[in-house]
Simulated assay, not measured.
Amino acid sequence: MLVANDESLQGSIRQQGVTLVDFGAKWCPPCKVLKPILDELAEEKGEAAMFIEIDCDDSPGAASTYGVMSMPTVIVFRDGEAVEKIVGLRPKAVYEGLIAKHS
């Protein structure tokens, strides 16, 4: 999973295809549970989608730009545009479904 910040996020999102951006923080317990799920999906579905991690404490501008109010928040981008937002921890199958839905 690629780690991005306020400055690098826009350039890291795929302009063609699917990108999942995980907005979280190191201290957030649900974020700690989500990270290995997304790492596993990145291994399994790396060709189908790009996975990016943003630490909201280090990159408050990106979180503000995309209206992130709670963590974790996963925003799905399709061809560079935000198309769906999932707030809170969900089972792995939900994130797999997002990739399939927007691919």
Rank of each mutant, 00 (worst) to 15 (best):
E47I: 04
R14S: 14
M1L: 10
V87P: 12
D58G: 07
K32H: 10
A48R: 14
S12F: 02
G46L: 08
G97V: 09
P72Y: 01
P72D: 02
M50W: 10
A42L: 01
A4I: 14
A49M: 04
L98M: 08
S64I: 12
K32M: 13
H102M: 00
E47Y: 03
L38C: 09
G80N: 14
V3C: 11
R90V: 04
G80P: 12
K85A: 00
I86R: 13
I99N: 02
K92L: 05
C56E: 11
D55Q: 07
R90C: 05
V21Q: 01
V83M: 01
I86D: 02
P91I: 02
S8L: 01
L9K: 08
Q15C: 09
A82C: 11
E96Q: 15
I37V: 14
N5M: 05
I52W: 03
I52E: 10
L89R: 00
R14Q: 12
C28P: 07
V74K: 08
E7Q: 10
S59H: 13
K45P: 11
L34N: 00
S70E: 13
Y95F: 14
P36W: 08
T19F: 00
E96F: 03
T65H: 11
A62G: 05
V18K: 06
G61P: 15
Q16V: 15
Q15F: 01
M71Q: 07
C28Q: 12
S70D: 10
L98S: 02
I52V: 13
P60W: 02
P36S: 03
